[in-house]
Write a protein that binds this DNA or RNA. Structure first.
Length: 421
DNA sequence: TCTGGGGTCCTAGGACCC
DNA sequence: TCTGGGGTCCTAGGACCC
């Protein structure tokens, strides 16, 4: 059996941990730039708020109902996620992190010595005690069914946080009650096609013949069909090294000058490179993209991307930023109001430092050490204490708007929580 | 005024090879 | 009248996920 442990409304729950008095009060967490709602508590959902709603469009509902609003702080959430994960690893030997708020737990063998449901309930209690984060667990034969079970665990209080699908009757009942569009792996396109073919519940899909599924769909949907019938085939364990690293942001205000666009891209390049080095990797390909504001129909629209291959895999901020600046020269257009830019590193290989016989960069080894020193300084004294001048300073127009930001309580000694007695 | 960010996998089709 | 067969690699785009 496999379990999916899922933190309930994770980002909102983390904010609740650090803000006394939010229990029972609706809480919303916003995306970058305070743009859209990305997470919210059940109380907020009950007000009719939906994931993805633009903040400015629902401001009235939020103010009227005294909803607590926070700018998303991924650094804080990632630190809390690590704590939750470590408690899960204390409970179950083989675990697999699937996302910031979800973990698969392999329970094979545990059924000999434990009641699986009680084992998971104990883990949930421990997590609540040590972190105050609420967690739901679904247990089943496959990952797709475990996901279904976890949704039931979340939905019905009677399960005590843990729902197990361990018989065929339970499987069929669960699949007959579950929304087809909410099945893991069924996106809007596949859902529409299934509906056209007369399939409206997960059970109807599961009961179709293998031949029927293969005739109408490609592999992803076929795999979902197998999983719904209890045959595990989705492997999420292979993602060891990232294949791409992206940093991109929408700007707080639109910009039109090349220097400002370069400043944003240089800052994103530096961020990509430090991620690269933290993974002990190097990239062979740099891409830069920039675009206008797609919601402003009154302005000329523009989108472009340019890519440069590097002769040697590199994790050197100086080199990659220099390439990125040349790419900005290629895609910049005067007169365009830019709303967003980004840097994508791809063709990622293991190891920070690579060497070729006829290198055009002198003292490459020292350059790598320089970058690593920058990482150390920034780690010790705070993000972007040291960086390239071309990336500009903190207060420029393109910087993201974050008006409701919670401090980095768990990762920055200067921002640690203060308690007044 | 204000509309997110970061990923993976699969497939078809083109280019190229012998 | 007749116009090969069997591959690989790369890329763009689609679909999906949190």
């Amino acid at each position: 059996m496999i379990a999916l442990a899922d933190c309930n409304t994770f980002f909102a729950s983390v904010e609740r941990v650090f803000h006394a008095g939010l229990k029972g009060r609706p809480v919303c967490v916003l995306s970058s730039n305070d743009g859209n709602i990305v997470a919210m508590t059940a109380e907020a959902k009950a007000l009719g708020l939906k994931r993805g709603d633009p903040f400015f469009k629902v401001k009235e509902i939020i103010e009227k109902n005294n909803v607590a609003v926070f700018s998303g702080n991924l650094v804080l959430y990632a630190a809390m996620s690590k704590r939750v994960q470590s408690i899960m690893r204390r409970t179950v030997e083989r675990t697999e992190c699937y996302s910031i708020d979800e973990q698969f737990l392999y329970l094979d063998g545990y059924e000999k010595h434990y009641d699986l449901v009680e084992l998971m309930r104990g883990m949930i209690k421990q997590i609540a005690l040590w972190t105050d984060i609420p967690v739901s667990v679904g247990i089943a034969k496959t990952k797709t069914l475990a996901k279904v079970a976890s949704k039931f665990a979340k939905q019905y209080k009677g399960y005590g946080g843990v729902c197990m699908i361990d018989t065929d009757d339970k499987r069929r009942k669960a699949l007959s009650l579950f929304e087809l569009a909410d099945i893991w792996g069924i996106g809007p396109r596949t859902f529409a096609k299934l509906t056209r073919l007369g399939v409206t519940t997960p059970l109807q899909l599961a009961d179709k013949s293998e031949e029927w599924v293969k005739r109408h769909f490609h592999r992803p949907c076929y795999q979902t069909w197998l999983e719904l019938n209890g045959f595990p085939c989705i492997d999420t364990s292979e993602i060891l090294r990232r294949q791409t690293i992206t940093t991109s942001r929408s700007f707080g205000k639109m910009i039109s000058s090349k220097d400002e666009l370069k400043a944003s891209v240089a800052s994103f390049a530096a961020s990509c490179c430090s991620t690269l080095r933290a993974d002990d990797s190097a990239a062979m390909s740099v891409s830069v993209f920039a675009c206008s504001n797609r919601f402003r129909e009154d302005l000329p629209q523009y989108w472009n991307i340019a890519t440069q291959r590097l002769p040697v895999p590199s994790a050197d901020t100086l080199e990659i930023t220099a390439e990125a600046m040349k790419l900005v020269d290629k895609i910049y257009r005067p007169g365009i109001m830019f709303k967003k830019s980004g840097v994508i590193l791809s063709d990622i290989v293991p190891g920070c430092f690579h060497h070729i016989l006829f290198d055009y960069v002198e003292k490459r080894e020292e350059r790598v050490m320089l970058s690593q020193t920058i990482d150390k300084i920034n780690h010790k004294y705070g993000l972007r204490s040291v960086g390239l001048a071309v990336a500009g300073d903190q207060n420029e127009q393109w910087k993201t708007k974050k008006e409701h930001l919670t401090p980095n309580y768990l990762t920055d000694i200067d921002q640690i929580l203060t308690v007044q007695i």
